[in-house]
Nucleic acid binder design. Structure first.
Lengths: 194, 194, 194, 194
DNA sequence: GATGAATGAGTCTTCATTCAT
DNA sequence: AATGAATGAAGACTCATTCAT
């Protein structure tokens, strides 16, 4: 990648981050290409230089964020700590992302309404990859005796579901900070696994 | 209410049920008044005879379904059974609704994007009322020694969050039937309370 | 006309008076058949029993009011008083109507925008008849030496124009009562004729 | 203002002039954005590129024309001629505008039916400014002994009312040219002031 | 690379009108 | 005579997308 390409890549990422914000604030339909461009002090037309169309822009938003998140949870998995501790950290990390990158997580909720078939399958696959890291943590915990669940997948879905739901109520519940929430959630959700 | 009014009320309900289906299938923005009318073999104009505008139609969808659900969970609360059993039944019932009335539950996810301020507060209030029934079951269970949680509200949010999330994956996971899912979820989520 | 017909005729007149009010308040396009019906505690459908369509209703409004006005100015003309006095009274009466029946006079301003060709010619004819009474007063005044104008028609148009324009500003100029306005207008406008 | 901006400004003015024509021909409600666009060989969408909405377009029509007219009558006021001559010229000019720019003058008749409150007050203010120039001419004439009226404002309203009314009948009265009409009107209306 | 301008399909909404009862 | 219900055509407005410059 030469300098020019690097510059373009950075610009693209800037756009994706801004787009995420606006989409989360106004929803997919509420966020117009105009809005997104304005936030970046660009014109609509310029967006089309970098992205083929709105869906493409959206898809790349999704991809960027979920990639980063997957990478980080993958690293938690590789650490040399107990499975309980891994799960606790993964839950905590996930909650932080759900709340702070709320933006993009909204897009994840109903991809069928937004994306076309080709994108959908890519998205679901990427999502599975992310979830599978949690599965691996659980599997490892079972093997070393820390956890004891039969329906592993379902337990994982309960955990992620509970945790994804936080964004539904978080903003309005001003008295708790993220750390406290994460502690309580981890405490209760770990009960499920034991 | 005379015959004519009864007929009109039934018609309104018919419309609301059909509207729910389409909205869940296509999302709020994807569902046009045209679509909804077509599904009912009506014309757009007729829809506007019964509802002031799209938001009004949507709000009444939401209200109808959540009312019914609240009533039923309220009845579970009043039954003469253990708190554990109550919570198990409430979870099971809720899961059934989430899956079968998936339609309307989608509307609940991001009401700010759809409804205007007056409706929003009504919606949130109605939602709180529903959630409070779960709170009462938990409270009762604590008082009679069946449950032992400190952060009651958060426990309830974990439960409802986990359970609401089911709709995200249910359709694609064809091998489990609702009953089985509900059993497993109830089993694991009750662990949180004890 | 038997009793039934009489009753219907009275009802029709009631409708016309109410319609006038609403039309003047909201304009021709702003006044919906619904509005008009509501003011009369009727339903839209009932209006169509009495009038073929909106234009018909409007036309009959116009006809009713202008007939009454013509009749009254015609009577002033026949009185046994000086032409100056006649014109003064005619102007005063006209101003009163313009302000008090403002309602219907608005409809007169731009009939082409409202009525179809058949109605238009009837309306213009009726209007001409009204104006011709003023012409006759002027003619008489010239013949008996009270007035001295060459361009009689144009003088009449100046008078009626000045006077019709009152409705444009009347409501906002709260400090003058109709009588005072009429006096001043008559004083100045009579100067034109002498 | 650079070249591009100048071009855009000219385009906007073009649009306003065309819009005026159509509005006067078909009335505010009769003139659709589609019509206006078609007249300009544009699409509806393009219109919305230049104006926020229909009311905005209308308001700017009004503003443009009334500004120009005010400026010109203001210049008549400043000329070094007798008050009688000034009033004669002002009346003549006003009549020319009423007839030739008939288009826009119609919009002035019932602004309440068209404009929202913010615009209304701006419009009334601009109108007052225009009328006040006539007031100043009258005042000056009184001071230098040419005119002798007590109710100055009302005299001004008679003059402008008479003159505005011309558009009601002008088109149908084909045998007089504007100049002749203006002469007669000026002659008679000046009688009011002396 | 970027912009201003334009397009056109689509969406909500309104309303005069009709008609069975 | 009157009503509730329904229709359908029309209109304002939005927005993703395109393209010449």
């Amino acid at each position: 990648m030469n300098l020019r390409e690097k510059k373009a890549a950075r610009k693209k990422e800037d756009i994706l981050r801004s787009a995420s914000k606006i989409i989360s604030r106004r929803g997919y339909n509420g966020a117009t290409m105009e809005n997104i461009a304005a936030e970046l002090l660009m014109t609509k037309g310029a967006l089309y230089y970098y992205f083929a169309n709105k869906e493409d822009l959206l898809y790349q938003c999704h991809y960027l964020i979920l990639s980063e998140v997957s990478k980080q949870v993958g690293e938690i998995y590789k650490e040399n700590i107990s499975s309980t501790e891994k799960m606790k950290r993964a839950i905590t990390f996930h909650i932080e992302v759900v709340i702070n990158e709320k933006e993009t997580f909204n897009m994840i909720i109903k991809p069928e309404l937004i994306f076309s078939d080709e994108h959908i399958s890519l998205i679901l696959q990427q999502r599975d990859e992310y979830a599978s890291i949690f599965d691996k943590i659980i599997q490892q915990g079972i093997e070393n005796g820390e956890f004891a669940v039969k329906e592993k997948k379902m337990a994982r879905m309960i955990i992620l579901g509970a945790v994804n739901w936080i964004q539904q109520w978080y903003s309005s519940e001003g008295d708790k900070n993220i750390e406290d929430i994460a502690d309580v959630y981890a405490k209760y959700l770990l009960k499920i696994l034991t």
